[in-house]
Simulated assay, not measured.
Amino acid sequence: MENSLAAIPLANLAIAFLPVLLVLIILVQWSLPTKNTLHALVRMLVQLLLVGYVLSYIFESDNAWVIGLLLLLMIAVSSWIALNNIEQPKIVLFKQTFIAIFISGVFILIVITQGVLHLSPWYQPKVIIPLAGMVFANCMNSVSLSGERFFSERQRAQTYINARNIAFKASMIPNVNALFAVGIVSLPGMMTGQILAGVSPFIAARYQVMVMCMIFASAGLASAIFLRLNKGYK
C-alpha cells in the first residue's frame, strides 16, 4: 500500500452526499423538521473546506503565540456550542463551561504531548491541532450531555449529589460504549486513517490506545469539573 492517499476529486466527493440525501428525504416524508439538519450539513461542508486553507497556513507557521491563540479560540467555541442543548442562559454558564474544558483539555494535552509523545517544541501544529480538536470536541460533548441531564434532574427536585451522579454517568455512556466496541465493532477514525495511509496496524493500534485514553479521561474530567462548578445551582 502506498504511504499517501490519492486526492479525492470534488465530483467523486459529491457521491458521498447521496446517502445523506436519502436521510433528508426520510425527514421530509415523515414530516420532520429539516431546517436544522440542512443548516448543520451546509456548515459542515463550508467549515471543512475553509479549514483546509486555514490549516495550510497554520501548519506552515512556527509561532507558539499563533498556536496558543488558536487553542483558546477552539476552547471558547466548543464551550459555547456545548451549551446549545442546555436550557439555561448561555452567558451564565459560559464561564463554568470554559473553565471545565480549559482545565481538562489542557491537562490531557500536556500529558499526551509531553508524557507520551515527547513533542518538541510543544506547539508543532500538525500534531497539537488535531489532538486538541479531538480533546476539546470530546469535552464539549461530555459537558453538553452532563449539563443537560444535571439541570433536568435538579428541576425534578433531585438533590445536588443525585443529580450530579446521574448526569456524570449519562455523560460517560458514549465513551464507555466506545471502549467496549473498539477493535470489535468499529475501527476508530485515527486508526482507520493511519491504516489507509499505510501505517502498520500494530503501530496504529498503539496510537489508538493513546487516543482512547485521551478521550475517556477528557470526557470524565470535563464533566466532573463542570458539575462541581455548578454545585451552587438552585
Rank of each mutant, 00 (worst) to 15 (best):
A64F: 08
R149Q: 14
M191I: 08
R156C: 09
L70E: 07
F150N: 00
L145F: 09
S144R: 11
Q88H: 10
C139Y: 03
L71W: 05
S31D: 11
A7W: 04
V199M: 10
M214Q: 11
I110M: 12
F136K: 00
M1E: 08
K35S: 14
S144A: 15
I225A: 05
H39A: 11
V106F: 15
A178S: 12
G147N: 13
K169C: 03
L196R: 06
I203C: 04
N230P: 01
V106K: 13
V143C: 07
V92F: 09
I26A: 14
M214V: 03
L32G: 02
P174N: 06
E148I: 01
G183Y: 06
A40Q: 08
K169T: 13
S144W: 04
I203G: 03
S31C: 05
A14T: 01
I103C: 10
S4K: 07
A167I: 00
I99T: 08
L179E: 06
V106T: 15
L50R: 06
N175T: 11
I86P: 01
Q158F: 08
W80K: 15
L45I: 14
Q158C: 10
N84M: 08
I75R: 02
K231N: 13
L109N: 05
P121E: 10
T113W: 00
L32M: 09
M212W: 09
P188W: 03
F216E: 10
V106S: 15
I15C: 03
V182D: 09
L229A: 11
M172R: 11
F136V: 00
V20F: 14
Q29G: 12
L48E: 05
V20R: 02
M214L: 12
N177Q: 08
A224F: 07
N63A: 11
S218Y: 00
A14V: 01
L145A: 14
A137D: 01
P130F: 05
Q88P: 01
I225G: 02
L27F: 13
N12D: 14
V116S: 08
P89L: 03
T113G: 00
L38I: 01
W30M: 10
G232L: 08
Y123M: 05
L32F: 04
R228E: 15
E2Y: 01
F102G: 00
G232F: 09
L49H: 09
T34R: 09
L18F: 06
G52T: 14
V106M: 15
L41P: 00
A14M: 14
V111P: 04
N36Y: 04
Q124G: 00
A219F: 04
Y53F: 13
I26L: 14
V77Y: 11
I129Q: 10
V199E: 09
N63R: 14
P19G: 11
C213E: 07
L119H: 06
M212V: 02
L10V: 14
C213N: 07
M1L: 06
I58D: 14
K90T: 11
R164T: 03
V116L: 10
